[in-house]
Amino acid sequence: MIEILPSFLPVFLAGLVVNLEIAFASLVLGLLLGLPLAVSLGAGRALAAPAGSLVGLLRAAPTFVVMFFLLNILPREIQIAGHDIQTGLLAVILANAAYAVAYIADNGLVALRALRAGNIATAVLFLPNLTRAFFVLTLASSMAAAVGTPEAIFVTLRQAERLPALSDQIMLFAFVMLFFGAVLQTVFAIINAVRAAILHRLAPA
């Protein structure tokens, strides 16, 4: 098991970059569509009702199923700004974006209401919440393995498939789980510390 790590780690880290790219693209799309929806949710009933229905629908749609739906309805050859885009990659970005739009609309509305009420501390919490969403999206992007996108979990599964001993396969999985656990727990601890610092600094004396 140890002997495969030198060759596996670079491929795994390259796969992790793909996860981060998917999460980033989904979050950007989520912001572009989620923020206007948050504003609509906080506006009059004429705007809030359709926006609420749309957000409810996006919230209820399972990301994994949305990804397969998009994979099967999107054209096979897609070019964006002159670049060929893999359909599977686009499907996973859009599916995660659906979740991100609902999340950002919900959290954006809370922040907007807090701003209107003059509660700056609650409004500013939108930023660490956004960071949390980014890492949730990074975890969720591993579903791209189901459509053959070479992200971290996909390359782990491929590597495990080639290991002859089951014990080695289990050790590889345990290694990747501990890696994700250590990295994300550290990130979440930092986010929580930032949240606490914001709340402490902006709390009324």
Binding site: L139, S142, I153, F180
Partner: peptide, 12 residues
């Protein structure tokens, strides 16, 4: 468990 991708947990 919280920080492991669900896909990985399933295969594990």
């Amino acid at each position: 468990l919280q920080c492991s991708p669900l896909v990985l947990l399933l295969f594990f």
